[in-house]
């Protein structure tokens, strides 16, 4: 990650660690990542955006298996990355972990887990955040 990324990451810790989004106080739409104002209600939502912690459960809408990874992720290939529709509505892009490649399926129920996203070489900061794993049916 380039210089200047540490403060940016630090500002986003609540959403990266705990999926903290927000909800429009006017139309009740839920946003993740949180928005300053609701794009539908605009002025009516100003000052009415309420902090909301998402439960971290949802389903896989679509996914892809990454063989040619970007920097910092090379050691993990091949790995699945998915668009997940959270139960509260927002969609997030995240890695799927603790799951064999063949077992990743569209519609699969997943839950968030706390993982290392990447580290800035051997000297820089370590960035943590959410990934998703299958919900085990007991």
């Amino acid at each position: 990650m380039a210089d200047g990324a540490v403060p940016r990451f630090w500002r986003e810790i609540p959403q990266r660690y705990n999926l903290i989004g927000n909800q429009c106080g006017s139309c009740s739409k839920i946003y993740f990542p949180p928005r300053e104002s609701c794009p539908y209600c605009r002025r009516k939502s100003m000052g009415k955006m309420k902090v909301l912690k998402l439960k971290g459960q949802g389903e896989v809408l679509t996914y892809s298996i990454i063989y040619n990874a970007p920097e910092h992720f090379e050691r993990q290939t091949p790995y699945p990355i998915a668009i997940i529709k959270l139960d509260e509505g927002p969609k997030v892009t995240a890695q799927i972990v603790d799951c064999k490649l063949d077992d990743v399926k569209i519609g699969m129920r997943v839950q968030s887990t706390f993982r290392k996203i990447h580290e800035d070489g051997y000297i820089g900061a370590i960035y943590y955040g959410y990934k998703f794993k299958p919900i085990e049916v007991k």
Binding site: V97, T113, R115, K116, I117, Y128
Partner: peptide, 16 residues
């Protein structure tokens, strides 16, 4: 541990 697991992630999962 997988490459994205370390003492912080294991500790967080256990504490949660």
């Amino acid at each position: 541990p997988s490459p994205d697991q370390d003492v912080a992630t294991i500790s967080v999962e256990a504490a949660r």
